[in-house]
């Protein structure tokens, strides 16, 4: 019974942690939306430099995405790796 409870706690902790880790997606969402909005403004003001603004924006978006990707990778680790890792120590 004790082992069972410990297993349940570990699985629940991993699942809750994965869910919490994906909250990191909020930041890149806001940041990229802001960047794209500013890029649209810039293109509206100077339509002739559309291509360079677009490529710079895409690069910036990719870099802003990094923190969200870290959250996602953490979530993946918690879902698929951590339960086996911790259950092995019981």
């Amino acid at each position: 019974m004790e082992i069972l409870t410990a297993k349940a706690i570990i699985m629940a902790g991993c699942a809750v942690g994965a869910g919490l880790a994906l909250i990191a997606g909020i930041g890149p969402g806001i940041g990229e939306g802001y960047a794209v909005g500013k890029a649209c403004e810039a293109i509206g003001r100077q339509p002739e430099c559309k291509s360079s603004v677009t490529s710079t924006m895409i690069l910036g978006c990719a870099i802003a995405e990094t923190t969200g990707i870290y959250g996602f990778v953490t979530g993946l680790l918690l879902m698929f790796l951590a339960p086996n890792l911790f259950l092995g120590k019981l």
């Binding site: 990719a62 995405e65 990094t66 990707i69 870290y70 996602f72 990778v73 993946l76």
Partner: peptide, 8 residues
């Protein structure tokens, strides 16, 4: 991680 995370 950026490349891996996006594809996965």
């Amino acid at each position: 991680f950026r490349h891996f995370g996006n594809i996965v």
